[in-house]
């Protein structure tokens, strides 16, 4: 189905947003880690929103996809570092991350996507925790000993390249994943998938009666979202931090962070996760500096306040305000 080009205008503010962020990181010395952390939050929100925002299904175990993605990259580097593959290893790692997260999302999809609402949320928590205990209990990939592969990277690429990979290129990939997630979101929104999912979000039974193959579209969005999460884990956690422990990557608070980001920005909007990620990241960073040790106590009531008083999120409110102005076509 062809759509006029102007339907894709909203990608412009996304591009500008990430561009400015990237620019600040490159121009201002000594801020790159902060910028990459912000990009991580934006990407996390963006990828999570792709499925959650469109369908209204809350995947509480979403972090499992990041976890298996991290393992994908880790396995590649840990076991292949002395095979002389060079940078191909990174590519293999990314592919493994995508494959692992696809497989997991298919498995989860087969079970959990039949469920709705709270049942879905609980089932996905079960998947995340169960998977972690499987890795620990059956001692898969070293079990709880995890994998530390800084040395492997240095052996394979040399010290300088390894450093550049983890301190710079990993973050660049995070930006890439964030942008890719935004593009995919917009594509789906302007496509059959998006229409079907919108119908489903409003009333799943009615959508079914209308003859929409609900399961298929749900699965498409779910897998896309999972792959993006896998790539994010592979870059932001494995390649950047060069270690992986199961308790560390299957930690449910990352899902909570994703939900907070999406809600701050506005669920189901394209710009929301970027705005939400920036607000969340910057305020968290600042609170950690200003009030070390108290920031969670301050942050939690603010979250409640925002959810109760601004359920549409920042972009949701903005959307209403620009309605009927020339800006309208840029903001969704």
């Amino acid at each position: 189905m062809m759509r006029p080009v102007r339907a894709y205008y909203p990608i412009l503010p996304v591009l500008i947003g990430y561009g400015i962020l990237f620019g600040i990181g490159q121009m201002v010395p000594g801020k790159w880690q902060l910028i990459s952390q912000l990009a991580f939050f934006c990407a996390l929100g963006q990828a999570f929103n792709l499925f959650m925002g469109m369908t209204g299904y809350v995947d509480f175990g979403y972090v499992a996809f990041l976890g298996v993605g991290t393992y994908g990259m880790a396995v590649s580097i840990y076991y292949l570092f002395d095979k002389g593959l060079g940078l191909t290893m990174i590519v293999i790692g990314m592919i493994l991350a995508a494959v692992f997260s696809t497989l997991l999302s298919l498995a989860v999809g087969a079970v959990a996507l039949r469920l709705r609402g709270a049942y879905f949320a609980i089932a996905t928590i079960g998947v995340n925790e169960g998977f972690r205990f499987l890795i620990e209990g059956a001692r898969i990939w070293n079990g709880s000993d995890g994998m530390i592969f800084s040395r492997h990277m240095k052996t394979a690429f040399g010290r300088e390249t390894a450093m550049a990979l983890s301190m710079k290129w990993a973050d660049v990939i995070v930006f890439g994943v964030a942008f890719l997630a935004a593009v995919m979101t917009l594509l789906y929104m302007r496509n059959k998938v998006g229409y079907a999912l919108t119908a489903l979000r409003e009333d799943e039974d009615a959508a079914k009666v209308m003859g929409i193959n609900v399961t298929r579209y749900k699965l498409i969005a779910f897998i896309t979202s999972a792959i993006l999460a896998g790539l994010l884990g592979a870059s932001a956690w494995a390649l950047k931090l060069t270690y992986v422990y199961p308790t560390d990557v299957f930690a449910i608070h990352y899902t909570v962070e994703a939900i907070i980001i999406v809600l701050l920005g506005g669920a189901g909007t394209l710009l929301g996760p970027i705005v939400g990620g920036l607000i969340y990241g910057v305020s968290k960073y600042y609170l950690a500096i200003v009030l070390p040790g108290f920031q969670l106590m301050i942050f939690a009531p603010i979250i409640i306040m925002i959810i109760v008083l601004f359920p549409e999120g920042t972009v949701g409110i903005l959307k209403k305000r620009v309605f009927g102005t020339p800006l309208e076509k840029f903001i969704i």
Partner: peptide, 22 residues
Amino acid sequence: KYYDCESKKESVTSLLERLITT
């Protein structure tokens, strides 16, 4: 000079860089 990383790995990197550069 100390900041709180909340026992989270992403915060360690950004706060550490701030300590070093700023």
